[in-house]
Design a binder for these strands. Structure first.
Ligand SMILES: [Zn+2]
Length: 397
DNA sequence: GTACTTTGACCAAGA
DNA sequence: ATCTTGGTCAAAGTA
């Protein structure tokens, strides 16, 4: 593959890596195309991504030395780039974090296909690794009508459809994502996973793209790389960048939860943005004294097409899934850190509660439980007031 | 009383 | 000065 690489900086200081060339297949599908046709075309596109990742990781040297940024650039250049990580290094200032996001230039209507893992893929590997193969299931919220994802391990139920809602079988969630390589179609591969795990994944399975998209014109043209803010990359224990769900069902409605990334998020705003039919949602981490924010954008079929993180978490992830898995014991085990925290301990972020009344708003709250990113119901109600020390900008009105 | 979403309003920056 | 746009606030509502 030969393709020109273009690295540019936007006015906002974002770095943009653009792949020029035609190494990705052009696929045009009309809404009238049968699912089979769409499937074949999309599958071909996803295979290229997969084979690319595999080819990189088959090289042990590459595996050891390539950073995620490099991987993204490699993909953007068709594997021929000599660009070094430094060239796409991002601001590492802890307090000057700003959104960094790179998107394909002008996109077709629909950016995000679903890259899914075939049913034959062993979930065991994923449960033991940061790669979570999720059997996402969307169900209508009784109140909002939006969807909620189901816990990844609910595999047996994943194929069931409730209330006529279309169900996506499997989804890939890749924690530690630092870079998202995405096509115009939205086929995205997050590179921030461990090398071994990704190799294992790419060598043992085939990413496929679901034959979905309701009424969307599909066009896969130029690929581009997204380099997310990587300033917190230094910390293995507290990764700042969240997993990027590669697949959501195509229900045409926004998922109520943007991602299963191990952190709890509170939505604080939503905005209709230009060039997008769907609104952009703004979330902030609910952990006390953590001011990480993220923007989530969706495609026409409800898939997350873009997640932009701002800031750095100062706490471990909340792994609701693990808590349920280990269950019965009041133990929380972090996949990422390998550290086990007793629930209720200072490091148990699941119990952290932000006192919003003094910081974000003056409203009282009333609800019995906390449903975190994984859809888990937390009965925990211990309270931590840690809003002092808030360094974020305070607006006066 | 808690935790979260919704949503109109507000603000700042840029054109 | 005005308009547009993106980001955030915060009251109200939900569970
Ligand atoms: Zn956080």
């Amino acid at each position: 593959m030969n393709a020109a690489l273009s690295i540019s900086e936007t006015q906002g200081g974002d770095l943009m890596v653009t792949r020029k060339g035609n190494s990705l297949p052009n696929i045009s599908l009309s809404p009238k195309d049968s699912p089979e046709v769409a499937y074949k075309g999309l599958n071909a596109a996803s295979l290229e991504l997969t084979s690319f990742m595999s080819s990189i990781f088959e090289d042990s040297t590459s595996r050891d030395q390539k950073s995620y940024e490099q991987l993204a650039i490699l993909y953007a250049t068709g594997g021929s780039s000599a660009v070094h990580t430094d060239e796409v290094s991002s601001d590492t200032s802890a307090h000057s974090a700003k959104f960094r996001s790179l998107m394909p230039s002008k996109l077709p209507i629909c950016r995000s296909p679903c890259i899914t893992i075939p049913p034959g893929f062993s979930p065991t590997i994923l449960l033991e690794s940061p790669i979570l193969i999720s059997s996402s299931q969307f169900e209508l919220s009784p109140t909002t009508g939006s969807h909620q994802t189901q816990l990844p391990f609910d595999h047996e139920e994943s194929n069931n459809s409730k209330d006529g809602v279309k169900v996506e079988k499997d989804s890939v969630f890749i924690p530690h994502s630092q870079i998202s390589i995405s096509s115009d179609l939205g086929a995205a591969v997050s590179c921030g996973i461990s090398h071994e795990e990704l190799q294992s994944w790419t060598s043992s399975t085939r990413a496929i793209i679901s034959p979905v998209t309701q009424g969307c014109n599909l066009a896969l043209r130029n690929a581009s790389a997204s380099v997310w803010d990587s300033k917190s990359e230094a910390s293995e224990i507290i990764p700042a960048v969240q997993p990027m769900p590669l697949s959501y069902s195509l229900t045409g409605q926004l998922p109520q939860r943007p991602s299963k990334d191990g952190y709890n998020w509170r939505k604080y705003g939503q905005k209709q943005v230009r060039d997008s039919v769907y609104p952009r949602s703004y979330y902030r981490c609910t952990f006390p004294s953590c001011y990480v924010r993220k923007k989530v954008e969706y495609s026409c079929n409800g898939q997350i097409t873009r997640i932009v993180y701002k800031g750095e978490h100062n706490h471990p992830k909340t792994q609701a899934k693990e808590r349920l898995n280990m269950n019965n014991g009041n133990v929380l085990h972090s996949i990422d850190t390998g550290v086990t925290y007793p629930i209720g301990s200072a490091t148990d972020c699941s119990s952290g509660k932000r006192n919003y009344s003094g910081l974000h708003n003056s409203t009282g709250y009333s609800r019995g439980s906390n449903i975190d990113d994984d859809g888990e119901v937390n009965g925990n109600s211990s309270k931590i007031d840690a809003d002092s020390g808030n360094s974020r900008e305070v607006k006066h009105r």
